[in-house]
């Protein structure tokens, strides 16, 4: 029987929405599913985690070393708690990607990155080559560490009521790493990773002023906003809006790619979108090969018109 430990990501006392998707990936493995909350004061996060359907217990390890998300401090705590677990799962976010390999290395076990399907307790699917191939892998004996590709799973409901248990870990904050802060874009728009609709703009926007066309349209339809790497590199929008192989991987019901050519690295981030709409002035742009609905023309006239008509 498996015993699964899911490491909870959280910020400002709130559980990250991705954790409910990790639980969805953990459930088919079978067995107990415990959530580990590492925080300075994890009470509110633990209460949220306890409600996730399928969670059998929440462990809260309050420790001053957990006050900021420093991998060198969190990994030893996970390793301490992980004894006796068959699986240690993390969300496939920058948080999970930062901490999980550090845990795997300390446990001396390999890690499976970006689990997208669970066949059994030891067999999983994961993408390689920016999602242009999928491998089915078999993990060796011993604890398995993995990150979960969030776009592949549907969040479990908040209908549970698991017990919450305090645990203590011996971790002392390492002096060698100092957290200096987070520069976060505060936005009232839906979160890119959980939004049902997303509108993304590419290099074609030409400037941050012009990107307003994308924001205005997104606001009209209540969508989150994303961007191609070219738009981010050119400084039109901040890095946390990048969608793709090395940015965010998303699975909205409706995705608009506007002035985006459709490079494989961008497509890697949107393969799970239900409906892809592309607007591009080049009829031969590769984005049209994957778009469900394509419209050829100048975005600066088409998008405002679309905004007015939707």
């Amino acid at each position: 029987m498996s015993k699964i430990l899911v490491v909870a990501e959280h910020a400002e006392g709130k559980l990250n929405a991705g954790v409910a998707k990790v639980i969805a990936a953990a459930t088919p493995i079978g067995g107990e599913v415990h959530v580990l909350v590492l925080a300075a004061d994890g009470a509110s996060v633990a209460a949220e985690a306890a409600k996730l359907a399928g969670v059998t217990k929440v462990l809260v390890a309050d420790n001053a070393a957990h006050a900021t998300p420093i991998a060198a401090n969190l990994a030893p705590s996970v390793v301490e708690v992980a004894a006796g677990y068959t699986h240690v799962l993390f969300p496939g976010t920058t948080f999970g990607k930062d901490v999980a390999p550090r845990v795997a290395a300390k446990l001396g076990v390999p890690q499976v990155s970006d689990v997208m399907a669970v066949h059994s307790a030891t067999s999983f699917d994961k993408p390689i080559y920016a999602g242009n191939a999928i491998t089915t892998v078999e993990t060796p004996a011993g604890t398995m560490v993995a990150t979960v590709r969030l776009a592949s799973f549907t969040a479990v409901a908040a209908t549970g009521s698991a017990a919450i248990e305090k645990v203590s870990v011996a971790t002392v904050a390492a002096a060698h790493t100092r957290y200096k802060g987070l520069e976060a874009q505060k936005s009232a728009r839906p979160d890119l990773q959980s939004a049902a609709k997303v509108v993304s703009g590419g290099r074609a926007l030409g400037s941050s002023e012009n990107f307003k066309v994308i924001f205005d349209f997104a606001d009209k339809i209540g969508a989150g906003v994303g961007a191609s790497r070219a738009a981010v590199d050119s400084g039109y929008v901040p890095n946390d809006m990048q969608v793709g192989q090395t940015g965010k991987i998303i699975a909205p019901s409706l995705y608009f790619a506007i002035g985006i050519s459709g490079a494989i690295q961008h497509l890697a981030g949107i393969k799970d979108a239900k409906v892809i709409v592309a607007i591009n002035k080049d009829a031969d742009a590769p984005i049209f090969e994957v778009a469900d609905i394509g419209l050829v023309g100048d975005l600066f006239t088409l998008v405002p018109e679309l905004q007015a008509k939707m």
């Binding site: 001396g108 076990v109 390999p110 499976v112 067999s123 993408p127 390689i128 999602g131 242009n132 191939a133 999928i134 491998t135 089915t136 892998v137 078999e138 993990t139 060796p140 004996a141 011993g142 393969k271 892809i276 709409v277 049209f288 090969e289 994957v290 778009a291 469900d292 609905i293 394509g294 419209l295 050829v296 088409l302 018109e305 679309l306 008509k309 939707m310």
Partner: peptide, 29 residues
């Protein structure tokens, strides 16, 4: 060498079916 995660098989990703091209915003809507 570390214990290996064994690759059992490699498959192409599910392909998206070819969509439609529309000519106007009205058709898109």
């Amino acid at each position: 060498a570390a214990a290996a995660v064994k690759v059992i098989k490699t498959t192409p990703p599910p392909s998206r079916s070819k969509g439609v091209m529309v000519k106007t915003v009205d058709e898109l809507v």
